[in-house]
Design a protein around this nucleic acid. Structure first.
Lengths: 346, 346
DNA sequence: TTGAAAGCGCTAACAT
DNA sequence: ATGTTAGCGCTTTCAA
């Protein structure tokens, strides 16, 4: 039952009449090999379709690697808590592979904390950075600093326009907006307007928030141009959400609402309070408040961005890159995950 | 940057004052160790929280393993083709890990072919079997034969009642039926009846087909008991599908149709032909005909059972079990994957 | 430019 | 009952 070892580096060495050291040198392009032997070895390698044994490779390399993680404070926000759970769940695996993750958190309400943490990371010179750049300008500065220091970056959840991270891991925001519009049109029984709601004025301009809106509008324009819609920004400072919602509903005949953040529950709880059943609501993310309202059907659909899985994928992609030197995909987009009251996993 | 080696078997040996051979013996319960040293080694091991290095373990073990795969002929059916693609996509990985997959196919229309292949597998004595038992009785016989020969079995897509495979990998059929009912009630604009359609008379009694139906009915009874529904079995032999559908629609006012197999396209193409837009249709599986009709919106939703991923998971689970001796989950159920016209990945 | 050899953490056969 | 040792496939250092 012992594996037949006619496929390894040793076999290449035997067939090409050189030592395994030489084979290794040509395989890793470390030079110091005559053109002649190089050619021969490469020929044999392709001929026997050589695939390195990653387990052995890992074992022999046996290095430690440090990567830094920079995300919003998990305790501040359930979404980021879920993301961090994803990190934690792969931690033991990545540790075992010799990849150590150092976590840095910033506050969503304070750009300074982002800058502070970014600087700290730069000081510690990790081999890689995993980042969710909720502050675009500060994020771009940090991105450039990392590029200068040749530290590869993986971004997840959010990207910065015009950057080329090693990989972006997330969902297709534009498409998710289209799907939201589609779900609303499918479930809406009367012809009232659709409302696209934004919270947190300052984040409205973030690219993936805009993409969601554009996707939504794009769908409406293309598939049901008769449907009217309006874009509303709820003022976060006053916290008079309910008043603002009421005003919106009083002024307009609304049949469907699309909330482009994880705050659909704010609307849902209003609908619940007033027992409004003829307005369909689509939002994002499986946070506990959202789930509760999804179950009681004041939210019709939630689009699950799966921060957990995004985070796991980020770590894993970095491990693949750093220790197995695998080529990584520059964009890993998860399929749109539509969740309903009964499809949710308990 | 070299990893600190204060966590391995060598360290345990050093701390407990014995040789690594002895440590290995107690760790693997191979006996021939005095109770005293055994206790000591175990203490130290838990103390330093010893976790074996699976890479090294794998490298040292270095065995070949053969597992057999028994599924319906992929060329016969797009669904099984997708499943087999999943197998193929993990093949190089599993090969590298020393796990060789031998594929056996049976015909969905011929139980004899199942029996024949099952016998062949038993003759070849693989270390494990991956199986989708579409024929329950023959499947049970094979299951028992494997149990007798102590060959572990993983089932995916379908199970056999009252069996205990190493793992079942699939979707929750009952829940998926509920979700289908929910989607229909959400999107249906008038009060007509719902129709639950079955094809292929002989498979109607398969447990996961029934589960889908039960789930559907369960949802209706619980959430909208006023809604009438009827269960219809379309006669497969005559192939007069359109006639049968027409008769159904003539006799009843139908507002929604649930097809519990991947044959929703049969209904969808009828609706397309007659340009019927006020009947919502929910089916299963992303086959090309279904996708086409989903895109043109004659099918409202498809529930993706993801045969690809199920198959991949089956192989991976067996690898984990055989080579890494990991404990495996006896049920791995994927979340319900709802697909719409715009959410589908091109 | 090349080869030889040590070693990664673990397993298993072989000594003692 | 316990210790020693030779690998597993690969990387990397040191000689030649």
């Amino acid at each position: 039952m012992v594996r037949n070892n006619n496929s390894g580096i040793k076999e290449i060495a035997r067939l090409s009449g050189v030592s395994i050291g030489t084979v290794d040198r040509v395989l890793h392009k470390r030079g110091r090999v005559s053109a002649e032997t190089k050619k021969k070895v490469e020929e044999i390698a392709t001929q026997i379709d050589y695939k390195p044994n990653i387990m052995a490779k890992y074992l022999a390399t046996n290095k430690n690697h440090r990567i830094a993680l920079l995300i919003p404070e998990p305790s501040q926000d359930e979404y980021w808590q879920q993301a961090y759970e994803g990190i934690e769940s792969t931690l033991s695996k990545s540790e075992q592979q010799g990849v150590h993750v150092e976590s840095y958190f910033y506050s969503l309400g304070d750009k300074k904390t982002f800058e502070k943490m970014a600087n700290e990371i730069l000081k510690n010179k990790p081999e890689g950075v995993i980042l969710t750049p909720n502050f675009l300008d500060e994020g771009l500065i940090f991105y450039n600093q990392c590029m200068e220091a040749s530290i590869p970056i993986i971004m997840f959840d959010t990207t910065i326009p015009d950057t080329q991270p090693l990989s972006f891991i997330g969902t297709n925001s534009f498409q998710s907006g289209m799907v939201a519009a589609e779900l609303l049109t499918m479930t809406t029984h009367h012809s009232g307007k659709f409302a696209i709601l934004h919270f947190d004025e300052e984040l409205v301009n973030s690219p993936h928030m805009l993409d969601k809106e554009f996707g939504f509008i794009n769908y409406i324009n293309k598939e049901c141009p008769d449907r009217e819609y309006l874009v509303v920004v709820l003022n976060n400072e006053k916290h008079y959400y309910n008043d603002q919602i009421q005003k919106l509903l009083d002024k307009n005949e609304i049949s469907g609402i699309f909330v482009s953040t994880s705050k659909a529950y704010q609307i849902g709880s209003y609908l619940q309070e007033k027992n409004i059943r003829n307005i369909n609501l689509v939002g994002y993310d499986l946070t506990s408040k959202n789930i509760e309202l999804l179950k009681s059907r004041y939210i019709s659909f939630l689009i699950n961005q799966n921060p957990r899985r995004q985070a796991e994928q980020s770590i894993q992609t970095f491990c693949d890159h750093i220790i197995f030197k695998k080529a990584v995909n520059s964009r890993i987009l998860f399929p749109i995950d539509i969740v309903t009251s009964t499809s949710i996993q308990e």
